[in-house]
């Protein structure tokens, strides 16, 4: 595997594809430390986004990873740690 990296740009795109975008939120803004709930994404939206990330980046994420990653920043960190192991 390549040393592929999961970026905020990837996350924004996948969130939009998986669950759309709340009108009152600027997803392109500084969202790294904003909680997903505040961004308008409930657990099911994160589950759907997670399964798209798994497919695209060929990794496995625990359900807990998704429910316990409260912000985009923390989720990106976990995913990149996974990518480092599998690469």
């Amino acid at each position: 595997m390549s040393n592929k990296e999961f970026t905020l740009t990837d996350l924004r795109r996948i969130l939009r594809e998986a669950a759309g975008e709340d009108e009152s939120v600027d997803l392109d803004g500084d969202i790294l430390d904003v909680e997903f709930e505040e961004l308008g994404y409930e657990s099911l939206a994160l589950l759907e986004a997670g399964s798209r990330i798994e497919r695209e980046f060929n990794i496995r994420l625990d359900d807990e990873t998704l429910t316990e990653s409260m912000t985009p920043g923390s989720l990106i960190k976990v995913i990149n740690a996974q990518l480092a192991i599998t690469s």
């Binding site: 939009r16 998986a18 669950a19 759309g20 975008e21 709340d22 009108e23 099911l44 759907e48």
Partner: peptide, 8 residues
Amino acid sequence: LPSRLIPQ
């Protein structure tokens, strides 16, 4: 409809 509702 808002985009949040389309995928679901």
